[in-house]
Write a protein that binds this DNA or RNA. Structure first.
Lengths: 392, 392
DNA sequence: GTTTGATTGTTAGTAACCTTTACTAACGAA
DNA sequence: TTCGTTAGTAAAGGTTACTAACAATCAAAC
């Protein structure tokens, strides 16, 4: 399944993972060693986004000399991260190039999505984000430490299913998650100040990264969905959450609570009472249960469409100041297609346009995600790729 | 006025400025030379924020060895950027330390504020942002290329007034300004696609940086006003603009238009017609001329206070989604104290709190700036310090 | 008064890194 | 076959930061 490099990696195990991590960790002073790590990452990045490059291609792309690139590539090949594909076939003058690629199948990434109702989902992917294996666990009624155990058990099954050395574990969790991967608050799971990242890292002896589900989804959309450098991803489900990408980077917020849009009050005309105590929160307009209730109460198609459009309008009203203040280039929605993709989306787009300064570019693109239900696990995988390899 | 290093810098002139600039410019590959530039900047940063450090102190703070720090400091002293202050006086065992500092009075920064009504303001500061000299130019009725000439003339006067080598020129301009310092649109000055930065750089042969006035103000608030790492600065004047700091960095936006909040529609209950054609824009509620008109129409103090509170509420309504989405830690207002600081500010703060999820931290701090009318020129100076020295 | 220990800053030598220069290998075109 | 081009490698050189060692200097303990 995995070539020599991967086996090598398996032998050395955790130490190797740490080394990858340290090669990326940001810091202040630059020693020659750090400089080389940085250049290593640049080579990996180039290889990641366009496979089939030669050493000479890399030298041109990265800006280092062929000599240095050869040296770096030799390191990466020795580590099992890069493989030679063979000679380039096209007819050009000169010595034929040896094509390289990241060892895409030589490592596995494990990604978990804890944001579904009563269900934990997990996948094993390769370095491309291709899903190789799926597992899930029913967690109806399970909260607190039992839920932590359920995550750990699911992780164990995924590790057992992985057929290549595991590069790391990414987790998208509901609630507010801080930089250290501690879930500060996730009411549905009964979690408060749960150090999920540390707990899973200790039990699995793998690098683990935990983040909020909507934030993870935003990363996925940025990496695999082609989202703009300045974009917001809004996830509509039992609640409403968002992830923001500003200048190509995920926004964390003053208290790690960036994207918590669900309980922002929309409009100046009241609204339903929310679970949080306020009236007119975005969730009261947009959350799927409320939306479905309103649709069931509707008699005909027009009324239903009006209900969806009203929800979309509320979304647009709350997003307009964000789009204006950040000058966002794109708004992406994630959630049930049958409800979101249609009147709701169109109404939201129109509302945003009519309430912001339609600069010469005609306002932001507003669209559904193309990543479907895997968006959170894909984002969790991106977290691992970024954290362990520095890719993206 | 300026010590030997400064004279030296004067002689070599522009070439030196370029060198400073190149030492900061971001890039991809890391060569040893780039690494050293980076470390140079780290030393400067440490010295900038706490004067009176020894080489050994720097070594501890930056993480490099004393040997390397000594070498870097020797370079910086040779360049005139750092000076020795003398021996440390306090009684400690060991050889007394030689204290160092950035040559704070040895260089000047020129900063311009083009955002006033019919007035261009400019200052000369030292590296601390202390204003040493002021100039202004009445530009009533002056627009287009005449306005560009007026800026250049004001800049010439400031250069002539500077008593130390000029490190660079920062300009805070109204309108939308792109990364290259081109004013894409500034209706009041009759500017569209005016390459102000390039024009001034060519005429003055100095490094020039142009940015939007509210964005510059946000930088000033972050650097000199102690603003939070995630904050928004709202500037209320003839129009309404904002600058956002996210993760400690200024947000530019998809089309360089971040912070353009003035023409975002507020609320769902209509409002006055705006110059832009829409109704209920934030400017129609908050801009100073409109606000003053409403106050003059009011009969008694209570009505006036209510008008101010209403304006503050509208500001809060439009900021709430931004505060929630970005999880901002602070909201800072800049503008006429007599109008903003009071009912308006309190109402805005209360509205933001009541419309966002009052996380465990009680919502963002909401306050006036302490930097007064110099906020934009100070921000322009910060741009120069950041761009030329990498400080902050 | 002397010794001891601590701190600062410098000198000398070393290891790591990237570059320049020069080379071989391999290929198409004339 | 020769020429020009491209890919990759090898050797030498310069820059960078590190370790080790040292002199200068001072407080505090003896």
């Amino acid at each position: 399944m995995s070539p020599q490099g991967a086996d090598l990696a398996t032998q050395r195990g955790t130490a190797r993972q740490q080394r990858f991590a340290s090669s990326v960790r940001a810091g202040s002073r630059v020693t020659p060693e750090r400089a080389r790590s940085h250049n290593r990452v640049l080579v990996l990045q180039e290889l990641y986004r366009s496979e089939g490059l030669s050493r000479a291609d890399l030298a041109r792309a990265v800006g280092l000399t062929r000599v240095t690139i050869s040296d770096l590539v030799a390191d990466l090949i020795a580590d099992g991260l890069v493989i030679e594909l063979g000679l380039r076939s096209d007819a050009r003058p000169g010595k034929p190039a040896t094509l390289l690629d990241i060892n895409r199948k030589g490592f596995a990434v494990i990604a978990l999505d804890l944001s579904y109702d009563n269900l934990f989902r997990g996948v094993v992917t390769d370095l491309d984000g291709t899903v190789l294996h799926r597992e899930h666990a029913d967690v109806t009624g399970i909260t607190g430490t039992d839920a932590i155990d359920a995550v750990a058990a699911l992780l164990d099954r995924l590790v057992a299913a992985a057929k290549a050395p595991v590069l790391g574990v990414g987790v998208g969790s509901p609630g507010i998650v801080d930089d250290a991967g501690t879930v500060l608050s996730a009411p549905n799971l009964g979690w408060a100040d749960v150090p999920l990242q540390a707990a899973l890292a200790e039990r699995s002896e793998l690098p683990v990264l935990v983040a909020n589900d909507a934030n993870a989804a935003a990363l996925a959309e940025r990496t695999f969905g082609g989202a703009h450098e300045d974009a917001i991803l809004v996830r509509v489900g039992r609640g409403v959450g968002a992830g923001l990408i500003v200048g190509g980077r995920l926004v964390r917020g003053a208290h790690s609570a960036a994207g918590e849009l669900g309980h922002v009050v929309v409009g100046t005309d009241g609204g339903d009472v929310c679970a949080c105590g306020k009236s007119g929160c975005l969730e009261t307009w947009l959350a799927i249960p409320r939306l479905q209730a309103r649709l069931e109460a509707a008699d005909d198609a027009d009324t239903r469409r009006a209900a969806l459009a009203a929800a979309g309008e509320r979304l647009g009203i709350s997003l307009a100041p964000v789009v204006g203040a950040l000058n966002l280039g794109e708004v992406v929605l994630s959630g049930p297609l049958d409800l979101l993709d249609g009147s709701l989306l169109e109404s939201a787009a129109e509302t945003i346009r009519s309430r912001t300064m339609a600069d010469s570019h005609g306002g932001p693109a507003v669209r559904m995600t193309t990543l479907g239900r895997d968006i959170v696990v894909l984002g969790a995988a991106v977290m691992v790729l970024t954290g362990q390899l520095g890719v993206f």
